[in-house]
Every structure is written in C-alpha cells, then in structure tokens.
Amino acid sequence: MKVLITGGMGVIGAEASRRFVKEGHRPVLFARHRDDNLIGDLADRVDIELGDITDLPRLMDVIKRNAITHIVHAAAFVGAVSQANPALSIQVNVNGTVNVLEAARLFEIKRVVFTSAKGVYGPLSGEFGYPEYRPVPEDMPKNPKRIYDSAKLMGEHLCVYYNNNMGVDTVVLRFATTYGPGKTARHGKMGVTSQIVEAPVAGKPFRIAQGGDEKDDFIYNKDSALGIYLATIASDPKSRIYNIGSGVGSTLRDFERVLRKLLPNPDIEIGPGLNFLGMPYPAHGVYDVSRARDELGFRPEYDIERGVADYIESLRGMKARAA
C-alpha cells in the first residue's frame, strides 16, 4: 500500500502520517506549504510533495509518480478564515474534494478516506444535548450551520456518489471534538481543548468564563489517526460513513483534574455553564461509535487521562527537537 495524505502536515494529517509510519508504510504527504512543526520526527520516513488540491494536474502527477494506491483526504480550509470566505471555502473544501475523487477514479485508487466533522449534524438539543447527552448515531438528520460544515457535508455526498456511481471506493469519517498538538495555533478559538493543555505546560494561565458543565465527546488525535488507518485497510466496510470519537461524555473540568495530577500548580480557571466554544447554538454532544467498533474494529486507545499525558509528552518532545 502506498498512501497519499492530503493535508499530511496538518493537525489530523500529521498524526495519520505517524500512524502509517508506525504500521510500516512510507506515506506521501501532500500540502500547499511545508511545515515540519508536527512531523519533525518523521522527516526521514515520509515523502513530501507540495501542491494544492484545487490543482488537479499537479495532484494527478503526484499520484502517478509515487504509484499511489490509497488516499486519505484531510486537507481543508478551516476556522474563522473559512467562515469569512465562503467562496474560497467551497473552492477548497468542495471543489478540491471533487479533484481528489476524480484523480482517484482516473488512477483506479483502491480507497479514498474522507475526513469529515461533527458540525455536519448542526445543533444538538433535546435528548442529544444537555443534560441527557444521548449518543448521536450516523443517521441523525444533518443541519450544518457554518460554511465549513456545509462543505464537509457536500464532500460526504460527493464521496457517496462516487462510491455508488463512479467505481471509487470511499469511506467517510466524522470526527468528534479533537485535541492534540497543533490545534491551538491552527484552529484559533475552536482549539479550547488544546489551549487548556498547552497554556499550563508553557507556564501560562488558562481562563474560560463559561462551559465547565458542558459534556462533549473529546477524541485525542492519535485515536483519530487510528480511525483513519483502520478505515484505509478495512475490507469492504458495510456502512461507508462512521462516527469516530471516544463515545464518552467528558468536561473541561476532567481535563483540569488530569492536568492538576500531571503538572505542578497549573493556573486554570473554568467558569460554570455550557457552550465553552461560545457558539450561537448548542454544538456539543456524544457520539455513538458502535458502527465504527463493529465494522472497522475501532476502539479508542486514549481516555482523557492517557490522552493528556501523551499530549504533554509530545509537546516536550517538540520543544526539545526545536532547541
């Protein structure tokens, strides 16, 4: 297997790259700019190709020259910049996905794994929100509110279409709220679950006025990468669309509890209430991950305690390599 990872130096892509290396593969990382910050320890075990997913000829050239057999499509235009630029968001996140699928069709790629997001479900309320948090199944009605999430849902529909009509084998993964190195810098205010770890590790205070009572499904990026790897190698997955999360509701205070065990006197203050991301609608919930467990063999390896401990170790390793 020779896998191409679009966005392979990004927050999710870097951990996916690491997982493929761990499993004995040498992935090709495709990105607009070279940024070794999250892949510095992998430099001699991956190949890097610079390019844009909106450039179909360049994408096809990379696939052909590297004899690519599988694609993980993790490249995306994210954050507040995406929200403020809907036309560019659609160009990158939808048209770019069309290019990936077209290239996969033309070169008879064996599997395309598309990374989607929890935002495709839109507001979660009633039994799926506070205080019950009934786990959200994949067939939950979709009602995305942000342009990024709308584009992700369009990408999902494209994958299903190409799978059913164009002979392109696709698998879609919807990630819960992710945390891990890199999200603070690249995802802005949406990276609260990374800020709460990175600020105390750096000796800085972490303050948030509200949200301490909100439960959410937090998945460590190494578990996201595990889901990607399993989806890439799965033999004829039945459902094609899967929630990838912890399947457990946790709060920011759970992060605080673990950090107080692992760090000397971290300066953390978390206010009460819900909605720690400050969204204009209820966006937190817990995933039903039974489909991924039963069909992909996905079982998260990191609870909050183990995830935060590994996160801290990773940050220290990155600092040491940069010194």
Rank of each mutant, 00 (worst) to 15 (best):
I228P: 00
N163P: 11
D236W: 02
K222F: 02
T232Q: 06
N165C: 11
K204D: 11
E198L: 03
K238C: 03
A199E: 15
V248M: 10
N164P: 05
R146N: 12
M190D: 14
R240W: 01
I244C: 03
P135L: 03
F128L: 13
D217W: 00
D217R: 06
G129Q: 01
N221M: 05
G129Y: 01
V160T: 14
P131K: 03
K222H: 12
G203P: 07
R134P: 02
D217P: 00
K152M: 04
N221F: 04
L173C: 09
K183S: 14
K204T: 06
D223A: 09
Q210F: 11
Q210I: 09
D254S: 08
G211A: 04
V160C: 02
S235E: 15
Y220F: 15
A231T: 07
C159K: 01
I233C: 01
G180V: 03
P181A: 15
E256T: 04
S246C: 04
L158P: 10
V201H: 07
S224I: 13
H157I: 10
R253C: 00
R240V: 06
F128E: 14
N143D: 15
K145F: 05
D139G: 01
K238Y: 05
V171T: 12
V201C: 08
G126I: 09
T251I: 11
G212P: 09
A225Q: 00
K215Y: 05
Y242F: 12
D213G: 09
N163E: 15
S235F: 10
F255Q: 03
A234P: 06
E127P: 08
F218G: 05
Y130N: 12
F128K: 14
K204W: 03
P144F: 03
S235Q: 15
